[in-house]
């Protein structure tokens, strides 16, 4: 994968660990601080350009046309928007990820074409919502910008689905049990698989259907 990362030493050196493990990755870093660029250039297998990541010429000199991903970790939201927009619109970079300081800007960035804007307070608030909406025995995580939720739910003996075969549960078609963890085994569910108390069900669904699905697993139809 060919990746551009924009930012200063502390952010880039942390994030870069996720990418440098894979030797086939080609990584270009654009950093506007001379001191930070010098420090980053000591990291193996990356190329560092000391240039302003919000200027079009920085992308021309670093020759990033058709790269797969830009990760922008600049301090200012508008600068991150510009870096990602230059890469996507002018250099045909396929996907953009950036940090967003103002959590209210997450949805705005998405609407303006940034694929994955990430804000710590926004993620925290989504996590709290996930925790409080249902209850503590359920864990959730989001994929594809919160368009898919993965829900983990531990089956108790009083659940509607307990001791039933999947084919007899008639789970609503708004979600699916993708996997069952029955310590120490991982089961790929089929129609004749029985759910037993203690199983950990991994359910994929759209966020709006999550509550009803969990309700159904626990209590059956309303």
């Amino acid at each position: 994968m060919k990746i551009i990362i924009c930012g200063n030493y502390s952010q880039v050196s942390f994030v870069i660990r996720s990418f440098t493990a894979e030797e086939s990755n080609k990584i270009i870093v654009i950093c506007d601080s001379e001191k930070d660029a010098a420090a980053l250039s000591k990291i193996d297998n990356i190329t560092v350009f000391n240039s302003d990541p919000t200027k079009i010429y920085s992308y021309e000199i670093s020759d990033v046309y058709d790269f797969d991903l830009i990760v922008s970790l600049l301090d200012n939201d508008a600068n991150n928007f510009i870096a990602c927009t230059i890469a996507k619109k002018l250099f045909n970079v396929k996907k953009s990820i950036c940090t967003v300081n103002n959590p209210n800007n997450v949805n705005i960035f998405r609407d303006l074409g940034i694929d994955s804007p990430i804000s710590a307070p926004y993620l925290l608030s989504e996590k709290i919502k996930g925790e409080s909406d249902i209850n503590s025995l359920i864990k959730t995580m989001s994929l594809e910008n919160s368009r898919i939720v993965i829900t983990e739910i531990r089956v108790k003996k009083d659940f509607f689905c307990a001791n039933k075969q999947l084919k007899n549960i008639s789970l609503p078609n708004t979600g699916n049990i993708t996997c069952i963890f029955r310590d120490p085994s991982v089961l790929i569910p089929r129609g004749d698989t029985s759910i037993i108390p203690g199983d950990l069900l991994i359910i994929a669904s759209a966020p709006n259907d999550q509550k009803d699905l969990v309700q159904y697993i626990r209590k059956g139809r309303k």
């Binding site: 200012n76 939201d77 508008a78 600068n79 928007f81 510009i82 927009t85 705005i108 609407d111 303006l112």
Partner: peptide, 28 residues
Amino acid sequence: NTNIFIANVVLKYYKVPLVLVRLMDTTK
């Protein structure tokens, strides 16, 4: 950069008929 971002937000969410933007770097 701030001007471009704000102008894009205004264009996206509001039907303002005229948006003037100050731009030093005209390549943007």
